[in-house]
């Protein structure tokens, strides 16, 4: 069993109003050093295979098809030993 950890974030060119609101909240708590917050999604996908290369190919396909909308989002992932 392998585990893919997938991060999906809004593209740099896309405004993130949620991140902006959280940045404001952090500032109001005194964390003045915060210069930007981007909010994204984190997914753990367990895949029933021991073939890392194959898992990578399949997870990429999952990201392209469903997990990310590449019009507005970027994704990256790592394959770890389950």
């Amino acid at each position: 069993m392998l585990k893919a950890t997938v991060y999906v974030t809004l593209r740099e060119s896309v405004l993130d109003p949620q991140g902006h609101a959280i940045q404001g909240a952090l500032h109001s708590l005194g964390f003045d050093e915060v210069k930007g917050v981007r909010i994204g999604k984190y997914l753990e996908v367990n895949v029933d295979t021991t073939d890392k290369a194959q898992a990578e190919e399949r997870v990429r396909e999952m990201c392209e098809k469903l997990l990310a909308n590449t019009v507005i989002e970027d994704y990256r992932f790592e394959i770890l030993e389950g």
Binding site: L10, P17, Q18, V71, I72
Partner: peptide
Amino acid sequence: LTEAGLLPGALLRNASL
């Protein structure tokens, strides 16, 4: 329709949240 690719672009969270 945008997710299906029948129309271009995407719908994001309202700017005001």
